[in-house]
Amino acid sequence: MDENLKRQQEFMFMNSRLQLERQILMQNQMRERQMAMQIAWTREFLKYFGAFYGLAAVALTAGSIKKKKPGLLLPVIPLTFILVYQYDMGYGTLLQRMKGEAENILDTESTLLDMPKGVITFETIEKARRSQSKFFIEK
């Protein structure tokens, strides 16, 4: 009887461990797919924005030369920053730098990540549920 209970507990432990490993792998694959979609979106946006940037730069340069007003070139400056950021996000090292900074925050500034009023507990959820139930019952 004791042996049977022990085997059953071991089976339950291994089963829950396997389930947890599968959940972790699934969440990681979901995260990877979301990141891949974000990078793909950025690369696609870069194509359209690059075409807009090229057209705007040529038009503003031609307009500033024709009207002899160098101030017409000012919009090219912020557009250049946007173009470079999008390129860095889609094809550069921005994601690696962001990952490094995130790891640094986790290692050295973890207090910034604390939730207001602490971690949510079963008791806080139940308290909110009970107060909401009273609210709906009263109406």
Results as ranks from 00 to 15, higher is better:
Gln27Asp: 15
Thr80Cys: 06
Glu3Met: 13
Asn104Gln: 05
Leu20Trp: 11
Phe13His: 08
Glu3Asp: 14
Arg130Ala: 08
Tyr48Met: 10
Lys6Arg: 15
Ala128Cys: 02
Ile39Leu: 15
Ala62Cys: 08
Leu113Cys: 06
Lys69His: 10
Leu112Ser: 03
Ala62Ile: 15
Met89Ala: 13
Asn4Glu: 15
Thr111Ser: 09
Ile120Asn: 01
Pro78Ser: 08
Met115Leu: 13
Ala59Met: 10
Tyr87Ser: 05
Tyr87Pro: 00
Pro75Phe: 03
Pro70Lys: 10
Ala51Trp: 06
Arg33Tyr: 14
Ile125His: 01
Glu21Lys: 10
Ala40Thr: 05
Phe136Ala: 03
Tyr91Ser: 02
Met115Ser: 07
Leu46Pro: 00
Ile65Pro: 01
Met30Trp: 11
Val76Lys: 00
Lys67Leu: 15
Val84Asn: 03
Leu20Thr: 09
Glu101Ser: 09
Ser110Val: 04
Tyr53Thr: 05
Met14Asn: 12
Asp114Gly: 02
Phe122Gly: 11
Glu126Tyr: 04
Met37Val: 09
Glu109Ile: 01
Asn104Ile: 03
Gln29Tyr: 14
Lys6Leu: 15
Ala59Cys: 09
Leu20Tyr: 12
Glu3Val: 13
Lys127Tyr: 05
Arg22Gly: 09
Glu101Val: 08
Ile137Trp: 04
Lys139Val: 09
Gln38Arg: 12
Ala128Ile: 01
Ser131Thr: 06
Arg7His: 13
Arg97Pro: 03
Lys127His: 06
Ile77Asn: 01
Glu10Ile: 13
Glu3Leu: 15
Glu101Ile: 11
Ala36Asn: 13
Lys127Leu: 08
Tyr53Ser: 03
Lys67Ile: 07
Gly63Gln: 03
Met26Asp: 14
Gln19Thr: 12
Gln38Asn: 10
Leu113Asn: 04
Phe13Val: 04
Glu101Met: 14
Thr121Ser: 10
Ala62Gly: 04
Glu101Ala: 09
Lys139His: 12
Phe52Gly: 01
Glu126Cys: 04
Asp88Gly: 12
Met37Pro: 01
Trp41Lys: 11
Ile65Tyr: 04
Pro70Met: 13
Ile137Gly: 01
Gln8Ser: 15
Gln27Arg: 14
Glu103Lys: 06
Gly71His: 04
Lys139Phe: 13
Gln9Arg: 15
Tyr85Asn: 07
Phe122Ala: 06
Ser64Thr: 07
Gly92His: 02
Ser110Glu: 06
Lys66Pro: 00
Ala128His: 04
Val119Met: 05
Lys47His: 14
Leu83Gly: 01
Ala102Lys: 05
Ser133Leu: 12
Glu109Ser: 05
Leu74Ala: 12
Gln86Lys: 04
Ala102Phe: 09
Ile39Lys: 10
Thr108Asn: 11
